[in-house]
Design a protein around this nucleic acid. Sequence first.
DNA 1: TGCATTCATGTAGGCAACCTACATGCTCGG
DNA 2: CCGAGCATGTAGGTTGCCTACATGAATGCA
Lengths: 313, 313
Amino acid sequence: MNAHASAPRFLEPRHLELLREIAARRTLAAVARATHRTPSALSQQLRTAERELGVKLVEPDSRGVRLTPAGQLLAEGADEVISSLARVQARLDAATGAPRGQVSIGTLPSAGQVLLPQLLHRLRDTAITVSLDDFDIAEADFAARALDADIVISHSLSGEVPRGAEGLISTVLAREPIDVVLPADHRLAAQAQLRPQDVVDHEWIGVPEGYPFDAIPVAVEQLTGRPVHRALRLRDNHLLEALVGAGAGIGLLPRFSTRPAPGVVLRPLVGVSAARAIVALSRPDRYERLAVRTVTDHLVGIGAELMETYAAT
Amino acid sequence: MNAHASAPRFLEPRHLELLREIAARRTLAAVARATHRTPSALSQQLRTAERELGVKLVEPDSRGVRLTPAGQLLAEGADEVISSLARVQARLDAATGAPRGQVSIGTLPSAGQVLLPQLLHRLRDTAITVSLDDFDIAEADFAARALDADIVISHSLSGEVPRGAEGLISTVLAREPIDVVLPADHRLAAQAQLRPQDVVDHEWIGVPEGYPFDAIPVAVEQLTGRPVHRALRLRDNHLLEALVGAGAGIGLLPRFSTRPAPGVVLRPLVGVSAARAIVALSRPDRYERLAVRTVTDHLVGIGAELMETYAAT
DNA sequence: TGCATTCATGTAGGCAACCTACATGCTCGG
DNA sequence: CCGAGCATGTAGGTTGCCTACATGAATGCA
């Protein structure tokens, strides 16, 4: 653990980032998958880092590896260094005028559907390119995606920031009402708006437990003191809409991203808090990049336009 | 100036440092000399940096180069990044227990003579190695040496920090009286201490103009209103002492670093400020390194011991 | 208690990056 | 007008990083 061979002038950001990734993902293989490299490459990098620094950075730990205290220290320092690098780069980009580079976005399908077409339009003729991933997951899992993507478009019904997003930069893009979706010939369709006691005794099509939308039927149950019967639990909004149209029950859909099909109608739900916050999440060091900030700013603008559009109607 | 080819994940510290060096040294050839590389290597690095960033960083400027605004921006950012890297490294070193690496010291010969033997002794059995350079130069030139060395041991008669050392970390290591050196059989040798009017009319052996010690005869001239006659101007203290012993005149020597030869004696000079501050200078980013701080701390300790030793006698 | 899965790590070879040596061309000063 | 000093280009060697593949260890399930 001695015999350090002519250490390079600097601690290498490459190594720091690797350590941070290991700290976050717990296993070399996971880091390798996330960074599109082989575990072998990472293992070799670790060894050269250890050789350069003269310290052990990882230890075997059952099936995987564990950071040594020294490794952990560097992993923590990584944020500081990488943020500083990104800050300088951002200043350069700002001076050069045009932010550049690839911004990776992970998004809910429903929110992405209304936000991203506009975004791509706005990014046309800029040096920013976008890579996309989409997923529909439990509220608490959105934060984990901020490891992979520069910006995660998530939603929260519990407040302004999704659970688990502590330590992330979170920006509210819009507040979107969640409406009740009914067959057009449903008895309740005659009412302009619906109260909890109107809907509690009908057959529901819900979402899996832990999914944000589930907060609404839960609130209805608490308010009325009666159980909501969820006949089905689905993730995909369009599938749900189709089933509602087929008379399988009533459901909930976000207002902006739903253009009701002929057989169904949307009705506002009043008397419980029935809205979601659409929130962009970023890890602080990723948010230092000007391109990332720029995209986030655009998303804020698009969200504001969206709310205006619907407020006007 | 477009067509950026898959920029690496990070701004490279290597490039930032290069730009900072160019900002400081004004010419590629000078940087090449200072970093022991060829100008060609630097030129190529610049081109790759420009390719990666998609910005021109330098422009031809008469015989040399000049940083573009973008280059200047990055050169300024370099301090931030490199300091941050060094800070993390310092934390690692502190945790590992032992600071490591090479610390380059540039020093005055006289101060080095009394400080460095002790320093090397203290660094025995540590992982710190020292490289040395020595020079005897004008007070205002010491700061420039902080570009090359991690620690510059300099001195100032004008105050606590040498002129030109703004922006550098400066640490006072010791205050050393400057005594008058006389032939042992000189008439003034009978006095325990000497006043300006005692010495002004004798033949002096001085230092080149601008050198710190010259401040003392200048003060004597101002105080007495009479000119000091400098028969010779020398840099080397031992040479001066030998010539004083040979009766060529009287001179000034720092007390700690002079062990008077048989034929000469030292006498304190009172009535003017006759002392120098021995000061360690470091560029802030270099000072972030734990090894550099450790060596500086040792120097402070050695300086304190030195003053105690002389106060006791 | 096997047996497949999931890790980490080692080796060999390709590919790109960096540097030196050398040559060329430009700019200034005598 | 010529030489000194500087930047830049090219060719070639060396090093470093990564993939592909093989090995070995630990885990969890039948």
